[in-house]
Design a protein around this nucleic acid. Structure first.
Lengths: 332, 332
DNA sequence: CACCGATTGTCAATCGTTGTAGACATCCAC
DNA sequence: GTGGATGTCTACAACGATTGACAATCGGTG
């Protein structure tokens, strides 16, 4: 049924070793032999047995991507992009849904998958795996997104403080005075983005108001919608909202629409991530747009480099380029 | 570094095979031995090597899910659901983006991944892999979604004709007279849904108008937006639109908003899939809601059953339950 | 013609796990 | 206490690809 190396060898009239040499680009091989072997491989549609190869070589050319949930557009798009970046380099991505909290354990337990995978790209969100410190899985790991402690791992992330600063500054430049923030939860993402938000307020000489900083239990539409309702119930509702991701923003927009408020006239809204939904929404969503392709490509490259044994003990920290996309939700 | 079976055996003072037996729930083992072995396993934090196991057993407990693109919400949600269903059964899903056309090849080529995976769940959309007929990969395959030819493979799908009939009938019941359809492309999905659409029109004694049936090159927001623009440019624009998936509908809604038309007053819109975006959109989207969890669970179960060697030569064809969710876009 | 380097073949071992077949002990019945 | 029937565990050989040491062959050269 399954064609083996020996089948190829037999058909090409060479030894097994030679076929293996051809496949692994061993230097000393005649063009003629190589052609013969490659013809046989093509004819038989031979695919090396991944299990056997990985067992022998200790390398599988599989990496894992751990994300909270692939149902969320941002993570779905991220997964798609990482998958593509990996495929370009001939390696396969195994996507793992950590489903929130138990992520750190799950990642060590399941994640390692009995030595099948060569490394992990880990993208936490509403989870604070400080435990990661001790997560000496022995396998290379690249972290995506904010993480307070630097130097612990390789990391690829946008400068969230600066981006949040820009987003907030944009709202200020529109002349808004009561600018709320949604998503200041206990997650590190929330903390870092709030930092940029407050910094921008301060730079404009505006005080920050605790009543305008809303936590969100998750980063979903529902949470955004709920938070927005709370904001509207305030004696003095905001005239602008910076949501820490696009889903929150879309939820907020929904609430605003239900309340009969106009966007951006009554309330301006900014998001973060630039997911496709936001681009097509009415009003379209002003947001921070990371270069996801860059992110994916560099994360994969970084991991593979680490797997190859390069990099030594210094941990690299790459900063993803971003732009503020001004759209209808702030009067673009 | 990595602990092997033999390490566990040494520590427990038994043979390698006995440890293996314990792990695989071999019946004849003393409670004492089992306890000893389990203690050793726990102490060493032993994890079986997936490659070795898979090599020896010819089974990996990995299945692949081939979808056009995981960036699309429907497929992302489907992937998440299938992943969960598989995890519940202790198996791992490898998600493969076929990226449109070359899917049939890609699936045979990459998909098999050198015998690593035990079977495939294949979900085509805007692609017509009639070639699948000959795709005798030897591995079990379950098809999701419409496919004209029955009997060729196991399949899990919603009754698209009936669902489309219901969606269209709903629009008719609202008293709409010019009901357009977006997405009647060359794909089988388009063909099947158009069938239900026309059937409903006919049942109501309404003729179908070719000018109101728009093809869509893809099933994305952009395609929906473009198609809607064409419809609005007609001398006699429609007063209702049935979009063959939610993304098309969201794109259409965007165009309607830009044109200053009210939904549902001027134009009523129905989608298909019930993705989260539609639920939170303003106006929220009336749509056909498949029971995705049911779909995922049964698809996985079907595949595993087939992998286990059951089922014989008859091909099962499961029909996914669905409901029409009436929301604001049709005045719900 | 002998020699040299480049290329290919032979042989065996290895990766970690599991199936097969059999060894050894234990227990019951006669 | 012997025969059989269990029940428990172990030795050995695979699964398929890779690698290393070494021999064998080839073509061409001096």
């Amino acid at each position: 049924m399954a064609t083996r190396l020996s089948d190829v060898a037999a058909r090409a009239g060479v030894s097994v070793k030679t076929v293996s040499n051809v496949i692994n680009d061993y230097p000393h091989i005649t063009a003629r032999t190589r052609a013969k072997v490659e013809a046989a491989i093509a004819a038989l549609d031979y695919k090396p047995n991944v299990s056997a190869r990985s067992l022998r070589k200790g390398r599988s050319d599989f990496i894992a991507l751990a994300i909270p949930e692939m149902g969320s557009p941002y993570f779905a798009e991220l997964g798609a992009e990482i998958s593509r970046a990996a495929k370009r380099r001939g390696i396969t991505v195994l996507i793992d849904q950590t489903e929130g909290e138990s992520s750190a354990e799950r990642f060590v337990l399941d994640g390692m998958r009995g030595q099948l995978i060569d490394g992990i790209i880990f993208s936490p969100l509403a989870t604070a795996p400080a435990k990661l410190t001790s997560a000496d899985t022995g396998k290379p790991l690249v972290l995506l997104g904010e993480r307070p402690a630097g130097g612990q791992f390789d990391r690829v992330a946008v400068d969230s403080v600066q981006a949040s600063y820009d987003a907030t500054a944009h709202l200020i430049s529109l002349g808004r005075h009561r600018i709320a923030a949604i998503g200041v939860g206990g997650t590190s993402t929330g903390a870092v983005r709030r930092k940029g938000y407050r910094k921008a307020l301060k730079a404009a000489g505006m005080p920050h108001d605790a009543a305008l900083e809303l936590a969100a239990s998750g980063y979903h539409r529902l949470d955004g919608a709920t938070a927005m309702r709370e904001l509207l119930a305030l004696p003095e509702p905001p005239d602008a909202v910076f949501c820490f991701n696009d889903l929150l923003a879309l939820g907020a927009l929904r609430t605003l629409a239900e309340a009969g408020l106009r966007v951006p006239e009554d309330v301006a809204v900014v998001g973060f991530d630039d997911i496709e939904d936001g681009r097509y929404h009415s009003p379209s969503l002003t947001t921070i747009s990371q270069d996801t392709e860059w992110l994916a490509d560099n994360a994969v490259a970084l991991l593979l480099d680490r797997i190859a044994g390069n990099g030594g003990s210094t941990h690299r920290d790459l900063t993803v380029p971003y732009t503020l996309k001004i759209r209808e939700s702030t009067g673009g």
